[in-house]
Nucleic acid binder design. Structure first.
Lengths: 133, 133
DNA sequence: GATAATACCGACTAATTTGGTAGGTATTTA
DNA sequence: TAAATACCTACCAAATTAGTCGGTATTATC
């Protein structure tokens, strides 16, 4: 029950992008060096960030990555979900339905997970990339 | 970022114990059958629950497990921590200190994790085993 | 006292995830 | 044309999860 370094690396990299906003694209090589992260690993993280439309890319010389939106418009929740996949504290909550009933005999536990997950998402939505810089 | 079946199995087994409270010890074989959980796996989960003083055991024929306290006095948080280990949404929060400063350059992210973890623990402490039965 | 039921213990396995490496292709600026 | 970049695929080691197997110690009951 822990977020992995994927999230830490991703948030740090996104924070770099937020700080150099307006200066054109920044390459993964630069980010990797600045943040001491393996570049090929960063590449895969950015593939996810791009798939979720959190960053834009520019190929070729002097290419790199840019934030797709203003830092204030990118919540920590979005970054976490892009990197770690859909946030579900339990399997039975993966379908994103908000009903408390489920096929388990022990449905009462789902009430706990449901409230917990609501709190987590609320907290992660409250903070944006702008809060990190 | 998900609780595992360890927690689900453990909570279900603890709920069984809570329901048969006052009827003497119940064996793991019975619990495993009732809840369709592999018995050797359950054994290991109960080793953790016992290590954290959430259950008591009785060896020998007609032995088994009992709750160490009343269901109302056992929070979901305690059960989760017994089974999954110390709850930390991030490595830098594992030492349980409550300061927001840390050795990372990106200390601002720690503020987010810290608030998140506080919320999670608060929610898990709010619910007790009695709420599940 | 023997037996069966139980907790308890350690070694092993398969599948998955994480974090990382290596090498290549496509694109684009200079 | 060349160099810098994104982008892609395959592989690898370590850790974790969920589970199996076989054994030992203890104890109530016959």
């Amino acid at each position: 029950m822990m977020f992995t370094t994927k999230t830490e690396y991703g948030l740090r990299a996104m924070a770099v992008l937020a700080r150099v906003k307006g200066e054109g694209p920044i390459s993964l090589a630069q980010i990797a060096k600045k943040e001491h992260i393996s570049q090929p690993y960063l590449e895969r993280l950015f593939a996810r960030l791009k798939a979720d439309d959190l960053v834009k890319s520019a190929k070729g010389v002097s290419g790199g990555y840019l934030l797709a939106r203003k830092p204030k418009k990118i919540s920590i929740f979005e970054i976490v979900e892009a990197l770690e996949g859909p946030l579900a504290v339990f399997y039975c909550l993966l379908d994103e339905n908000t009903k408390v009933t489920c096929s388990h005999r022990e449905c009462l536990t789902k009430k706990v997970w449901h409230e917990l997950q609501k709190n987590i998402i609320h907290t992660l939505r409250k903070f944006t990339l702008a809060d990190l810089i």
